[in-house]
Design a protein around this nucleic acid. Sequence first.
DNA 1: TTATTATCGATAGAAAATTATCGATAAATC
DNA 2: GATTTATCGATAATTTTCTATCGATAATAA
Lengths: 215, 215
Amino acid sequence: MTTSAPVVVSRSTLKRLPLYLHVLEDLQRQGREYASCTMLAGKFDFAPILVRKDLEVTGAKGTAKIGFKVVDLIRDIKEFLGWHNVQDAFLVGAGNLGKALLGYKDFELYGLNIVAVFDADPRKVGTRVFNKEVLPMGRMPGLAKRMHINIGIVTVSADGAQAVVDAMVISGIRAIWNFAPAPLSIPDGIILENARLTQSLAVLSNNLKRTLQSE
Amino acid sequence: MTTSAPVVVSRSTLKRLPLYLHVLEDLQRQGREYASCTMLAGKFDFAPILVRKDLEVTGAKGTAKIGFKVVDLIRDIKEFLGWHNVQDAFLVGAGNLGKALLGYKDFELYGLNIVAVFDADPRKVGTRVFNKEVLPMGRMPGLAKRMHINIGIVTVSADGAQAVVDAMVISGIRAIWNFAPAPLSIPDGIILENARLTQSLAVLSNNLKRTLQSE
DNA sequence: TTATTATCGATAGAAAATTATCGATAAATC
DNA sequence: GATTTATCGATAATTTTCTATCGATAATAA
């Protein structure tokens, strides 16, 4: 097997790929066999050429006039994102957001399987969330090491986030998906991805403000 | 009053502004009076010049050697984002994610006040979520018009999303914050902002895949 | 007082992302 | 079978975003 060097692509492209994937899975359910960049672009008001460039990085090959084979394209995108192999993950913070994520069934389709939940609050420990028992924080490092967990999800408040991240790093976790609204410091080599709702809200608010102003 | 033309700035800048805001509010709580771009940049591993450029769009003025006055900068960013005036919003979809958003107290700091919750499921109607009664979908349009609601939040599943959005548009809602993983079509002039978790997850997964591959 | 340093603000330059162009090809139409 | 059309794939041009440079200024130190 020729292991080609991992391709680095822009964040923007990376964020558009799941959008295409959603649509493609929908098309697959509808029984469509082929999809063109023009058609995909139409769903999002993107330029067709942008979609073609994005798909290029996945290595998918299309044919003129008919486009890409839906099953192949789904496979190539998933493979490129690393979603073909499901990764086990730990979640820390059994608050509302944590519960919402635990209840989101589709994560497995996106390569993510949340296998355990932890919380520092003794009142939450022992309760069950979507059929998973909330475990005490103290057990996290040992279990993470033993189970070779690579992904940690942080859904605690801003205050506690840094401590949780530090514990995760010590436990051998390599990639952290952070939902806490706090800037976190991590050592080199650890992957940190922030999922901040307020960022998206900022774009919305500013657009609305401009619209209302120009009336 | 000289109403200057609304400034259009890049999405990237817009998404970084709330990050600075979080830090600044933290600094304010700590009693810091001034903050420099260099220091803010350090919190996020950004280039100081990038922060300076971002802040420029808000119209905030700093002084050499000391930086920006924290209170003024917070005010200018909030004003620029439209977060100085709190907007009332309706939320549709009282599932787990909907509940999580309802439970997020800080939205008011970010110009958002969720005043009512709706759901199409009769079993959910009448229940209370964070002290708000879940109302039937049928009442949404009338109430939205009467209360002059500008913002609608969609936390239903992908299937139901388009119908909810259509209803919102008819009800006079101008800006839609969508959490459903579906591409939505909206008429011109309506603002649509998608908050998609899978986008953020895609970046994380791809990074992790590349890290694991290169070992 | 004068020199030094950190930082701002403005302008210019570099890099990255997006869009356009064009030949090739496969299907559809005449 | 020839012509037209939609689309791909590759390369080039454009636009946008990010970074560097430089003079000005305010605080600090000598």
